[in-house]
Every structure is written in C-alpha cells, then in structure tokens.
Amino acid sequence: MRLLPYEDLLDDHAIHSSHSEPERLVARTGHRGKRVRGETRAYSLEALTKAIRLINGGARFICTNPDETSPSAEGLLPATGTVAALITKATGKAPYFAGKPNPLMMRTGLNAIGAHSESSAMIGDRMDTDVLAGLEAGMQTFLVLTGLTTMADIDKYPFRPSTVVDSIADLVDLVDVS
C-alpha cells in the first residue's frame, strides 16, 4: 500500500473544504486524479454523496484516524471516525485507518526522523489513539489531561499510559535538547 503525501491530494478532482486544517478523511480510486478527502467544520451532503459514490465505484477508503469527536471551544465536534461511520453505513465498506493508532504509521515516522522507540515518547490527549499508538510502537507514553480523556476515563481501557500529566507544560523539563 502506498500512502500519498498530503500535497498529492490537492488536484482538480479533490473535494476541498473551507476549513484551513489538513483534511483527514481520504478515499482514493485506482484511477489517477480521483481522490476524496475531508475533515472539515463544514460537511456538505454533496461532498459525502460524492465520497460514497466514489467508494462504491471502487475507490479505496482510507482514513487517518478513528477519532469520533474533536474538542472545540463550543463543545465536541464530529471528527473523522464519525464521518467514516456514516460513509461505512452507506457503502458497507470499512476504511483502512493509516494514522494513529496504526503501528505502521508510528514506525514509519520514527524511521523518517532516524529515531528509535526506546528513545522516543508519544504525547497525546486521547487514550484510544495517542496512548495506544505509542504503546503499540513500544514507546513511553504521556497522557495530557487537556483534551478529551479525563483521569476517570483511564480505567475504561485495558492499558495505561506511562505517565499522566495535567498539561504539556508539565513535560518541558523532561525534554533533552542535547
């Protein structure tokens, strides 16, 4: 399987969002130039319909992560996993999750920067993607409680982070810059 760089998704046949963050939901057909992408704050029925039709027509359904929600100042928002579930229900086809918590993504990232899991750490705010990804890659994990996961949520999982901190600021002194 070959994953395309984000820039390769930007072409005349892509569905573009009005949101400035990189889109995370990706479906790709075997035909050059036909790709669908999107995590956005402005979902449209037209874009979802196009994704469903492309996937039913043979597009490969690839998502970066199964996150069902994302935090915002106004409260939770639907995220990639929610949109993927809608498309799965409509097509009967489940996506391949290429990003967190996929261990292949973690190994590829470590290799790309010349790092080893023994000397690297995963810092995140989600038990189900960030901490799981780090654990499956053999890394030390730090759960920061500034996101969706609360201290009470940790007991819902059969695994544990190496360390739990209130904020990423609590980790600054641990960074080795030598």
Rank of each mutant, 00 (worst) to 15 (best):
R2P: 06
R2A: 09
P5E: 11
Y6N: 05
L10I: 15
D11F: 08
D11M: 04
D11L: 06
H13L: 11
H13T: 09
A14H: 04
I15C: 07
S17I: 01
S17G: 12
S20V: 13
S20N: 10
P22H: 11
P22Y: 11
L25I: 09
V26A: 07
V26F: 11
T29G: 13
T29K: 05
G30A: 12
G30P: 07
R32C: 02
R32Y: 14
R35F: 13
G38V: 03
E39N: 08
T40S: 14
L45I: 12
E46F: 06
A47G: 05
A47P: 00
A47Y: 06
A47D: 15
T49P: 00
K50C: 00
K50R: 15
I52D: 04
R53E: 15
I55D: 01
N56S: 09
G58N: 07
G58L: 05
R60D: 15
R60Y: 13
F61M: 01
I62N: 02
P66A: 10
D67M: 05
D67K: 01
T69M: 11
S70R: 09
P71A: 06
P71H: 03
S72P: 03
S72C: 05
A73V: 12
A73S: 14
G75Y: 07
G75T: 08
L76E: 15
P78F: 12
T80Q: 10
T80N: 12
T80F: 01
G81S: 08
V83Q: 07
A85L: 08
L86R: 01
L86F: 12
T88M: 10
A90I: 02
A90L: 06
T91E: 02
T91M: 03
G92V: 01
G92Y: 09
P95R: 04
P95D: 10
Y96R: 10
G99C: 07
K100Y: 08
P101M: 10
L104I: 10
R107L: 10
N111R: 14
N111L: 09
G114K: 05
A115M: 08
S119L: 03
S119P: 00
A121Y: 10
A121R: 09
M122P: 03
R126V: 01
R126G: 02
M127N: 03
D128Y: 12
T129F: 07
T129Y: 07
L132W: 07
A137Q: 03
A137I: 01
G138K: 00
Q140L: 04
Q140N: 00
T141I: 03
L143C: 02
V144I: 09
T146P: 05
T150F: 04
M151Q: 14
M151C: 00
I154E: 04
K156H: 13
K156V: 02
Y157H: 14
Y157M: 03
Y157V: 00
P158V: 04
P158R: 03
F159S: 02
R160C: 01
P161V: 04
T163R: 14
V164E: 05
V165K: 11
V165S: 05
D166M: 12
S167N: 14
A169L: 14
A169W: 13
D170P: 07
D170W: 06
L171M: 08
L171N: 08
D173A: 15
D173Q: 14
L174K: 15
V175M: 12
V175P: 04
V175I: 15
